[in-house]
């Protein structure tokens, strides 16, 4: 592949990404008001999306091989308790990450 072809390939990735981000806005904003069911989705999807993203970020964890996802599960439980206790996002995120790093570098 020459440089020009590589640039076209990369541009396709840009176009594809932007398509997924822009389409709802192009269809439903400004003069064309979003139909009822789209607004309903916009209001009710987010809790489900956050659940989806948690699983998405764990997709590469194997529960059958290696450490079997045990450090991830322990760290998530740890984050749950820290967050329920202090409700400080940055505190929970940083302690949770350090705890996970400690687990996989020294324990597992």
């Amino acid at each position: 592949m020459d440089t020009q072809q590589k640039i076209i390939m990369i541009s396709m990735a840009v176009v594809g990404t932007m398509f997924t981000r822009f389409v709802p806005f192009v269809l439903f904003s400004g003069k064309r008001k979003a139909p009822d069911y789209i607004l309903y989705l916009g209001q009710n999807l987010p809790p489900a999306i956050f659940g989806m993203l948690v699983i998405f970020s764990l997709k590469d964890v194997s529960f059958l091989r290696g450490t079997r996802g045990i450090p991830e599960l322990i760290a998530i439980l740890f984050i749950f308790f820290i967050h329920r206790w202090k409700r400080q996002m940055l505190l929970s995120i940083s302690l949770g990450t350090f705890f996970y790093m400690f687990l996989i570098q020294f324990v597992f």
């Binding site: 970020s57 967050h83 996002m89 995120i93 990450t97």
Partner: peptide, 18 residues
């Protein structure tokens, strides 16, 4: 090693906030 978990931690915390 393991620092990439910070993004999982972020998403877990946002989920918990909700």
């Amino acid at each position: 090693e393991g620092l990439e978990f910070v993004l999982t931690a972020l998403l877990v915390v946002i989920f918990l906030e909700q």
